[in-house]
């Protein structure tokens, strides 16, 4: 049920105000203004870009099953939980994902660890020539450099790396089967990891469930690595966290803002639509609470919008605008984004 639970959780957060594709784009990490802004509106940071390779077929299939089981309903193109679905979510533990921060980069962490363990294992058995499981040149280069900086053939490094990995797995807040997934996906001397198909058979779970559980496991592990306790693993994390959680295009827009250009001017300079630049503003504000919004909206206006949203328990732009017709949709979106920062 893992994948389904995640979907129910997200649909719950969307509060019946989004279509059924919104959660798909969220999990895929679509870098559109709408999706990025949804992340902030609905506090969905943990799920953003969790599974960039998710296929539309698997997603649609899951939604179909959730509908058949009457956990979710679709009305006027909006998807929401049924009472039965809500009961499911109520008892759910909060998942340990941190999609906003890692955005699929946890796979890079995984590949590095996989290659390090494979190498250490082969060397332990005097096999200095072996074929790396990781074919990605970037990964190979990283691990090579990582080893070059250390006395990696020494017993001391071997022991401390293993101990840190062991300690991390032991203490991390993971389910037993997640630790098994992690360790049994690793390979070493005369020991190959298990394929997803083999693990699927062993646990009688679907492949997607296991893959999500694996991603959660990686996020929890990365979160738990500390410089003091796991110095050797800490160095493997280089570049895994997204530093500026902005799309490339938004970064360019942001640079122009900092030079004092207006939305209209940036749009003209970048040959983009005004709408797109407005999306960037929302994205920038989501990522950087200190970004000055005064040029676009006043504090009173923000408060007004938030009052209305609170009063009518809705973030539907159309509804809010009925009460503040002098504000643009962009301004309302901006106000809602600021509001999330205060609450969240």
């Amino acid at each position: 049920m893992y994948f389904h639970q995640i979907l129910l959780f997200i649909i719950h957060k969307f509060n019946g105000e989004r279509s059924q594709t919104a959660s798909y784009y969220l999990l895929k990490g679509k870098k559109s203004g709408q999706t990025i802004q949804d992340v902030t509106y609905f506090q969905l940071h943990s799920f953003f870009s969790l599974f960039p390779k998710l296929s539309k077929e698997s997603y649609d299939e899951a939604i179909k099953i959730l509908r058949q089981n009457e956990y979710v309903q679709i009305e006027n193109a909006y998807i929401s939980l049924t009472e039965k679905g809500f009961q499911q979510v109520k008892n759910m533990e909060k998942p340990g994902f941190n999609g906003w921060l890692y955005r699929g980069n946890e796979q890079i962490f995984w590949k590095r660890v996989e290659l390090i363990v494979q190498t250490l294992s082969q060397f332990k058995f005097q096999q200095k020539k072996f074929i790396p499981n990781q074919k990605d040149i970037e990964i190979q280069h990283f691990v090579k450099k990582y080893f070059q900086k250390r006395d990696f053939q020494s017993l001391q490094f071997y022991t401390s790396f293993k101990l840190q990995l062991f300690q991390l797995l032991e203490s991390a807040n993971l389910e037993k089967f997640q630790k098994e997934l992690f360790v049994y996906r690793l390979s070493g001397y005369k020991k190959s990891g298990l394929t997803w198909d083999q693990l699927t058979n062993y646990y009688s779970k679907t492949e997607l469930d296991l893959k999500f559980a694996f991603i959660e496991c990686l996020h929890i592990l990365i979160d738990a690595i500390s410089k003091e306790q796991h110095p050797d693993l800490f160095d493997v994390l280089d570049g895994i966290e997204v530093e500026v959680p902005l799309t490339e295009s938004a970064v360019k827009t942001n640079n122009l803002f900092s030079k004092g250009y207006s939305i209209e001017e940036v749009a003209e300079m970048r040959f983009l639509k005004k709408n797109t630049i407005e999306d960037h503003v929302i994205e920038i504000v989501s990522a950087d609470p200190d970004f000055p919004v005064e040029p676009f909206i006043s504090n009173e206006q923000i408060e007004k919008v938030l009052e209305i949203a609170d009063k009518y328990k809705s973030k539907k732009l159309k509804l809010i605008r009925e009460y503040v017709p002098d504000l643009s949709y962009f301004q309302i979106r901006l106000a809602l984004t600021k509001g999330e920062e205060v609450n969240g």
Binding site: L120, S121, Y158, F166, K176, L186, G188
Partner: peptide, 17 residues
């Protein structure tokens, strides 16, 4: 016969002391 997975043992097999 279904092997029982044990992460601790497996880690020791991959990286024995």
């Amino acid at each position: 016969k279904k092997d029982i997975l044990n992460w601790n043992d497996r880690l020791n097999e991959l990286l024995p002391l």
